[in-house]
Design a protein around this nucleic acid. Structure first.
Lengths: 214, 214
DNA sequence: ATCTATTTTAAACGTAAGTTTGAATCTGTC
DNA sequence: GACAGATTCAAACTTACGTTTAAAATAGAT
């Protein structure tokens, strides 16, 4: 009795996999329906439109991602900001690079970054805004500057940019390094590196900026 | 006598603008033909297919980009690696963020990164490979490691990731900061920041790794 | 068992895309 | 000025997509 999941759920799973692999525009609802083992019309029956299916898919997989990888990876407000930054980076990287289903939301959001669908300002706002506020406040603490200052803004971009890049670069990386090294960089090592690289930079910048102010 | 440029050239200009703005898949040849003031069929007449037009467009705009921004922004092999890295970063950033036509190739390549068309392994190879070899050799010098070592690879990703991100993040950035600050971050400041951030990190990493080896 | 509401299905619809066609127009040459 | 080749054009062709339709199948309740 392996109670097959409901059609609606099967669609959400197929959509999660295919949307996150190939992006909103390149996936067709026929692909999804085939993969889910349902009729094409079922998708419109349950989700009205492709747009709406995409939105519901994002909502569905967001919870799964954040359940496994909370915003600061276990750290909390009472920890020193360097530890919190490390938690942020680790969760962010894992949420994108995890080889399991937990990275589906991260991959969807990463695509939304470089190629926005626009159809879902709502969930972007719900998700990206709090992350942005969190990371700027942590970095503000570390370099001792206002979270909205340009310095903090630049450093935020440097750090988030690194995290996303390790996902974006994968196809190119495969081409550059060649097939012999088939194994991908392990995500723990990637997170370690980004933490090390960024904390080194931040500590130098903190000193420099304090020198300026004195 | 304002000698209107040839149809072929007008198509390449329209294609450069529209492809780099909206990407290969989202632009239609009807858009391009309208913008170039030629008939739709002309595009197939001169370029056989959309695929091929895209390829020719990349080739055409590549020269323009590299003419203005050479690989090391004026620096050369005889300069210290820190200066060369700064040159690399500056050219890379300007080639992507320039507000004029010189950024068209950079924008096309940036898209190719996150959403490869695959139709042009050739030009990727021609362009990305030499850049990759250049940047890894420079960073190898700076942290005193083999250009193919993991350490160098990680640092390369960190730096290239930062550069690309300032382009990718623009739509999101606009949403986060809001419309009031309509002015984009100036690309000189961005390049300055990435250099400072990265050189700070690299110098710390160099020390650490040398400590390990001792 | 029958009736009703829900779900599933095959087929068709409408639109937009890349491409092709074949005639019309333009350009240069003898 | 007539011819040949190159270029331009409106229109049609083909394919793929998201969506809709209306009938068939299923499930649940009385």
């Amino acid at each position: 009795m392996d109670d097959k999941p409901s059609s609606k759920k099967r669609i959400l799973w197929a959509a999660g996999e295919i949307f996150s692999d190939t992006g909103y525009r390149q996936t067709t609802i026929r692909q999804i329906s085939r993969h889910a083992g349902v009729n094409v019309a079922s998708i419109n029956y349950y989700f009205q439109s492709k747009d709406n299916l995409y939105l519901e898919t994002l909502r569905y997989w967001k919870d799964i991602a954040f359940q496994k990888y909370p915003p600061e990876f276990g750290a909390s407000q009472s920890d020193p900001p360097e530890i919190r930054l490390e938690g942020f980076i680790r969760s962010f990287v894992y949420r994108i690079l995890d080889s399991g289903i937990e990275s589906r939301f991260g991959k969807l959001m990463a695509r939304e970054f470089t190629d926005p669908t626009g159809a879902l300002d709502a969930i972007i706002e719900e998700t990206a805004r709090p992350m942005f506020n969190l990371i700027t406040s942590i970095i503000g603490r570390i370099i001792n500057k206002d979270p909205l200052s340009d310095s903090v803004l630049y450093c935020t971009s440097s750090i988030v940019g690194q995290c996303l890049y390790f996902l974006y670069a994968r196809p190119m990386y495969r081409k550059m390094i060649g097939e012999q090294k088939t194994k991908l960089l392990p995500m723990d090592d990637i997170a370690d590196h980004i933490c090390r690289f960024s904390l080194a930079a931040l500590s130098v910048i903190r000193k420099e900026e304090q020198g300026e102010q004195a």
